[in-house]
Simulated scan of single mutants.
Amino acid sequence: MANLKEIRNRITSVGSTMQITSAMKMVSAAKLKKAQDAITAMRPYADKLTELLQSVSASLEGESGSVFAEQREVKNVLVVSITSNRGLCGAFNTNVIKESSRLANETYADKNVSFMTIGKKGHDILGKKFYVIHNNNSVFDDLTYENVSEITRRLMDIYSEGTYDKIVLVYNHFRNAATQVVKTENFLPIQPVALEDSVSSSADYIFEPNKVEIVETLIPKSLKTQLYKSIRDSFASEHGARMTAMHKATDNAGELRSELKLTYNKARQAAITNEILEIVGGAEALNN
């Protein structure tokens, strides 16, 4: 059994760790509220914009000359992996990295797969195994629509140049503070809905000046909104995952501290008992 000083040091160390994890939990809880409000408010707009674009694109029947709606033979695939810059958030980053690796090794095993990473943690791991064309860490320093638009424009440029035939996003979808689901989402080319599904919905729209021009205008805006929504989703998921992880860490630290205190009290009691026995034994020896 460890001596009393070692146990006291461990109790102090666990207590300090407990204070840190508790503080991190509160910070993430405060940031989560703002991030959750942002993604909750944005989702209906982003989903409706994507639905509108897909519906109109499907009804064009080949009229559109947009390169972003062109369906090519898939030879080169770009996976955009969205993680975080910091750890201590449970399996948040690990799940995205695993899914990204699975896409490269299984789903697109017969294709040339490259990566673009958003977040330091994903780049650190994926960069050792795969070819990463670009890493975007600074976007989380100032997460705005304008900054994300720069990344979108880069993706649109490399796709229009024919460097890649397909671009997919991998990120954590935010459900609640305790639940984040890894989601794989097609980014380019734009996937139109089935024509029969779009006919009924297109009947409700009056197009001015015409469908082609509307689609050409909607595509950049829709892609920018889609990527911004995905990063926002991941951002809210990160704080939810970190808050949950730090809550569990704080509880575990509390349990460990209680066990150490019990061990300390037992050791102290044993030490006192031994001292009493020694005193009594010494007194009896003197009497004899």
Rank of each mutant, 00 (worst) to 15 (best):
N176F: 05
S64N: 02
L227D: 12
N93I: 01
G240C: 11
C89Y: 03
G282H: 02
E6D: 07
M24D: 12
K221D: 12
A46I: 06
K48L: 07
K166I: 01
P189T: 08
V56C: 02
A236I: 02
G254L: 04
T184F: 03
M116N: 07
L143P: 01
T244W: 03
T152R: 03
S100I: 00
S59K: 13
Q180W: 05
I118E: 04
E238V: 10
L286C: 08
H239D: 07
V113Y: 01
S201E: 15
F130G: 02
V182E: 05
E70L: 12
I272F: 07
Q71T: 09
N137D: 11
E259C: 07
T273Q: 14
E238G: 12
L49W: 02
K211L: 14
K266Q: 13
L262F: 10
A30M: 10
M1C: 06
I97W: 03
D157S: 08
E106M: 11
T12W: 13
R43D: 11
E6W: 02
E6L: 05
T144L: 03
S237W: 02
S84G: 08
Y171R: 09
K120W: 03
R8K: 11
S149R: 06
S59M: 14
M243I: 03
H173T: 09
F187R: 02
Y108F: 10
D47I: 10
K221V: 15
F115R: 11
E185Y: 06
M42L: 14
G281V: 01
D142R: 12
T163N: 13
T217C: 15
A178P: 02
L277G: 09
V113C: 05
T117N: 11
D204F: 10
E51H: 08
L262K: 12
K98E: 15
N274I: 01
Q191R: 11
R257Q: 15
K261S: 07
T107F: 08
I276P: 00
H173S: 13
V80Q: 04
E185I: 00
G162D: 08
M243W: 11
T12Q: 09
I97C: 01
T225D: 12
N172H: 03
A29K: 12
K221W: 09
E63I: 08
L277Q: 15
L218W: 00
A109G: 07
T12P: 04
E278S: 14
S200I: 15
A46W: 04
Y264F: 09
E196T: 12
K229S: 13
K34A: 15
A194Y: 07
T117L: 03
T117V: 00
A58S: 15
S28L: 04
A271R: 15
I39D: 06
